[in-house]
Write a protein that binds this DNA or RNA. Structure first.
Lengths: 200, 200
DNA sequence: TAATTAGTTGATGTATACATAAATATAAAT
DNA sequence: ATTTATATTTATGTATACATCAACTAATTA
């Protein structure tokens, strides 16, 4: 269970500030300055910064400024892992989980910006979980922040054909077409990558 | 560049103590006790423990006790990532790097326990680096500790046919046979996994 | 006896003070 | 003016004190 410690609060605040570009890319973050801003001591700030270094949002005390290559690297790994995950999904997923995926697709069709984003994220999360591999799940989880940082969410939520691609993946899962599911997932992620790069 | 801070020293000592089973699997590690043993304050111990939690050697303040499933999960991810890496190696590696791999194989043939282990580790490291993907490199790096913890090194260094398998992979790389290299790497890792499980 | 409560111990979270190291600015010298 | 050396500031590393929280023990009561 997640606790409400000053460290966690600091972590979330700093992370969100980075997402909202309150701190610029490449900007040096010092412990005292952050501690002052957040009204806590340096100790929880250090904890938070360590966690942020883990997920790659901070590097050498500076807000990262991901390059195109960084993003490509991230997506290459993601394609491998989610490709595997969707294969497992196509093989083992039960009707109830498939129904959950269906719900995500529906929700993304109806909803507004924020909800669309959430539903699409959930779609991937469910598939990743279906891998039933904690190492894989954790690895993908750690990459999310960098992806999120890179992506301009305002633009991204209306990426063309995204929902159709999810639907196609869902169909492949439903029909237990592993090979097809993997291929669809990989090309889906490839399009995500290209879109992210070009809308940059 | 790595510094000689008390935090780093604490990290290495605790890690090695876990490897040497000075702390039992599942044992609860408290900050004060470790601080006393290492002759430092709690602060660097906390830093060290955080780092160890990152790489999965500690979970919830306890030394992890990896299950067979944990190991299988780790190897499944490793197979995906190193499979990809060796493909890149087969495609792009230059003669000098191939020579380095050759040296690893030679060294493993001649050397003694410790050197054999190092040379074989180095063989994989070179291939992983050839992926030219930092995200992938970091991900594999983080998994090493758990693999090392699980493996009984005394037994492992004499796993049958390990060197021959490395040689076969090297040949595939030399001949730019991507598909073959990937297949060989994956079955090589599969055998590693099986050996680790059965010699348990 | 089982269960609840109070009290005690121990562990972690947080703030702060001090020490060391890094970075920057200032002055001197070529 | 550029470099070298020195001084000053600033940031980080480490120790320690205190506060809070959790775990355990003992005692009281149903």
């Amino acid at each position: 269970m997640k606790q409400y410690t000053a460290s966690n609060a600091a972590y979330e605040k700093i992370r969100d500030a980075i997402f909202e570009e309150k701190y610029e890319r490449g900007e040096k973050l010092t412990e005292v300055k952050l501690a002052d801003e957040l009204g806590v001591s340096r100790t929880p700030v250090r904890d938070a910064m360590r966690k942020l270094e883990e997920e790659g949002l901070i590097k050498d005390k500076r807000v990262i400024n991901p390059t195109i290559k960084d993003l490509m690297n991230t997506f290459d790994v993601r394609m491998l892992l989610e490709g595997y995950a969707v294969r497992q999904a196509a093989r083992y997923m039960g009707p109830d989980q498939i129904e959950d995926l269906q719900q995500c697709v529906e929700a993304a069709k109806r909803g507004k910006t924020e909800e669309i984003m959430d539903a699409n994220k959930e779609f991937h999360d469910i598939i990743v979980k279906a891998s039933n591999n904690d190492v894989l799940i954790d690895t993908i989880d750690r990459m999310q922040s960098v992806i999120f940082l890179f992506r301009r969410t305002v633009v991204y939520h209306q990426r063309p054909r995204l929902i159709e691609e999810h639907e196609a993946i869902l169909e492949a899962i439903r029909n237990h077409e592993e090979e097809q599911a993997e291929w669809l997932m990989k090309s889906h992620l490839k399009k995500d990558l290209d879109f992210s790069i070009h809308s940059w």
